[in-house]
Write a protein that binds this DNA or RNA. Structure first.
Lengths: 346, 346
DNA sequence: GTGAAAGCGCTAACAC
DNA sequence: GTGTTAGCGCTTTCAC
C-alpha cells in the first residue's frame, strides 16, 4: 500500500544516465558523451554533467553498455585448482595481462572434473566473455564448438583440447623435460629409475612418461612397467607405491616424479619411517616453493610465463589476428640442487 | 536455398530468443518460459522450442537477463595476490561457495596497492556484481560508501577496512596466535626472541606484534625494539635483518616470523653461509607447504575456512539477512614440528 | 554542440 | 497455455 513505483527521490537502485541527464538539465546522449570522454562537448556543459554525476554518485552500468556494444571486456579462466601453486601462478599472470587490456577475469576451478569444466565454461559463455583460457580437465570439447563458432576466442593452456575444436594451445615441453630429467639420473649412474606421476588420462603425465621412455631407450635400457606408477597424487598412494617399489627384487635407486604434487607427496612418503632404506636420488618435474631449501633437483617450467603467453595469444586473437590455430611449446629448465645428483652406490 | 529461415547464415553474433521463437513458430515469451524452466508450457510446444534451441545453438545471454532482473549472480573477489598460497587457498573456498550459490567470481589481485584495489573494486561495481569480498590493501575505503549504499554487499577478509564504511569483517585471531607462538618459545627458555614481520602498515603484522608484546609483558620481559624488524618480505631484507640481529651484543636465540612469506624468506636466509652461527629456534605465523618436512613449528590459520566463512557471510547478506555489521574472528592453532622446541642452550 | 529515437536480448506484467 | 507490450541502462544512428 505504501508502494510508490515512480518516486525519484526514493529511488531504489542506482542513478542512471537518465537521472544524471535530468539533474544536469541535458539530454541523455550528452551524459553518455561525457561519461565516455567523447569529444564535442562544451566544457561548461561537461562541467555541469560532472557535477551531477558526483552529486548523485553515478557509476556507469557496464552490463548495459556491454549489451549494446557486443563486447564484455571480460574473459573466463578455467583451471584445475587455484589453490595449486602451479595454477595460481598461471592465474596471476593471466590477470595481469587482462588488466592491462582493460579486461576482467572470471576464474573457476574445475577440480579435474570434466563436467564441472564444461559447466564453468558454458556459464562464462552465457555471460558472453570475449575469450576463454582453459586448462582442460575433460577430453571432449565438442561442447565448445558452437561457442567458438559464435565468436568466443579460446586458448588452451597446459594441455591441448580433446576431441572438438582445434584451438590455440600453449603447453610446455613435457616429453623433452622428462627426458632431460631422466637422462640426468642416468648420467649419475642410475639404471633402475622409477617413474611416479599422475593418471595416464592426464596429457602432461603421458607426455612425461614418453620422455622418460625415450631417455631409457636412448641409453639402451629396457622399459620396466614395474617401475612405473601413475595415479592421482596423494600421501597414501605415494606410500603404497614406494613400499611396493622398494620391495622389488631389483628396486629403483632413483625416482623421477612427474609433477609438483607427486613430488611433494613422494618426499613426504620418503620421510616416513616405513619407507626408510638406502637413500634414493630424486628428480621432479615442476619446481615448487622450498625445493631449494630441501635440495630437490627439478625440471622447472614457468607457470607465470605459460599464463602470460596464453593470455597474450588470446588478446591477439581478440584484436583480430587470424590464421590457423597455433600450438606453442615452452621450454623447461633443469635446476640442479642435490637430490638428483646422488650417485649410484657401487 | 540461400535463405534458410531456420539457420540465418549471415547473422552477426549469436541467435537470440527471437530467432528461436521464429524458428519454433512461437512467441518470444514462450521461448523464455522454456529456457527458464517456467511451468505452464505445453509439452509438445516445449519440445519444438528445445529442438529449435538445439538446431540454432542458442544459449541465453545472461548479460541481458541480468540487466532486466537486477541481479548479476556474480561477485568480485579482491585479494593481495592469487599466486600467494594463502590467498589462493582463500580464493578456492570463495569460488566453491559461490558456485554452490550459482554465482560466478571475478578475481583480481591488488598487489598490496591501494589504488589498484580501488580500481578493481570499482570495475567490479561497474559490472554490478552482487557482492564483494575484499582483502583490503588500502586504508581508506570511503570510495566504497556509494556502492554499499547502492546495495552492493561487501565483506572484508583477513583485514578490517580502513576509514569508510563499516562492513562485515572476517579475520583470524592475529594477536592471540602471535601470543601463543611467542609463549611457546618462552616456555622453551628463550628470553631474546626476535620478531620479523611485514610492514607495520599491514593490519595483521601490527596485530601480531601486539600479541608478541603481550606475551613478553606477561612473562615480565622487556620489549626491545632492536629485536623487531618489520618490512615487506624478501630474501635480501631477511638476510640483512638476520645479520644485524646476530651481531647484537645480546643476540636473539629464537625468531618469531610474522607471516608465511617472511618465514620462508627467513628460512632461506638462515640457510645462507653468511648467517651461520648457533642455531636459533623458529616459530612462524601461517602454515605453509612442506613446513612439515622442514620441521617448522607454526601458528596455523586456515585460509580456506577464512574464504568460506567470508563467502557464507556474504551470501547470507545477499539472501536478505540484516543486522549490524559482523566482525568474526577465526581461531589459530599451534602446530609443533621441532623448530620451535629447540631449547635455549645453557 | 546537442538531442530524439531506435534498439542490444532479455524478463515482468499483463493481456487473451 | 500463450502472446503482447514495456522496459532494464546503455550506445548508435542521424537529425537539428
Amino acid at each position: 500500500m505504501r508502494d510508490d513505483p515512480d518516486v525519484p527521490e526514493t529511488r531504489r537502485g542506482r542513478p542512471t544516465m537518465n537521472d544524471v541527464a535530468a539533474a544536469a538539465g541535458v539530454a541523455l546522449k550528452t551524459v553518455s558523451r561525457v561519461v565516455n570522454n567523447e569529444p564535442g562537448v562544451n566544457a561548461t556543459t561537461a562541467e555541469r554533467v560532472h557535477a551531477a554525476i558526483e552529486r548523485l554518485g553515478y557509476r556507469r552500468n557496464d552490463g548495459a553498455r556491454t549489451l549494446r556494444r557486443g563486447r564484455t571486456a571480460s574473459i573466463g579462466l578455467v583451471i584445475e585448482d587455484v589453490a595449486d601453486p602451479f595454477y595460481s601462478g598461471l592465474s596471476r599472470a593471466v590477470e595481469d595481462v587482462a588488466l592491462d587490456e582493460g579486461c576482467l577475469v572470471f576464474t573457476g576451478s574445475s577440480g579435474e572434473d570434466a563436467s564441472r569444466e564444461r559447466e564453468l565454461v558454458l556459464a562464462f559463455c552465457a555471460r558472453r566473455v570475449d575469450g576463454l583460457i582453459i586448462v582442460p580437465a575433460g577430453t571432449d570439447h565438442d561442447y565448445l564448438t558452437p561457442e567458438i563458432d559464435a565468436g568466443i576466442a579460446a586458448v588452451f593452456a597446459d594441455r591441448p583440447p580433446g576431441a572438438g575444436p582445434d584451438a590455440d594451445t600453449v603447453v610446455c615441453d613435457n616429453a623433452g623435460g622428462a627426458r632431460v630429467g631422466t637422462e640426468h639420473l642416468l648420467a649419475h649412474g642410475h639404471r633402475r629409475i622409477a617413474f611416479l606421476a599422475d593418471s595416464p588420462s592426464i596429457f602432461t603425465a603421458t607426455e612425461r612418461l614418453r620422455g622418460y621412455r625415450e631417455a631409457l631407450a636412448s641409453a639402451g635400457l629396457p622399459y620396466d612397467e614395474e617401475l612405473v606408477a601413475m595415479a592421482p597424487p596423494g600421501r597414501a598412494r605415494a606410500l603404497a607405491d614406494l613400499e611396493r617399489l622398494f620391495r622389488l627384487a631389483d628396486p629403483p635407486t632413483a625416482l623421477f616424479t612427474g609433477n609438483g604434487r607427486t613430488t611433494v607427496a613422494t618426499l613426504r612418503a620418503l620421510a616416513a619411517p616405513i619407507t626408510h632404506g638406502p637413500p634414493v636420488a630424486v628428480v621432479g618435474f615442476d619446481d615448487f616453493e622450498l625445493a631449494d631449501l630441501l635440495g630437490i633437483t627439478v625440471v622447472a617450467q614457468d607457470p607465470a610465463r605459460l599464463g602470460r603467453v596464453a593470455a597474450e595469444l588470446l588478446f591477439r586473437r581478440l584484436a583480430g589476428e587470424s590464421g590457423p590455430p597455433q600450438r606453442l611449446e615452452l621450454p623447461t629448465r633443469l635446476v640442479v640442487r642435490g637430490s638428483g645428483e646422488l650417485p649410484l652406490r657401487g
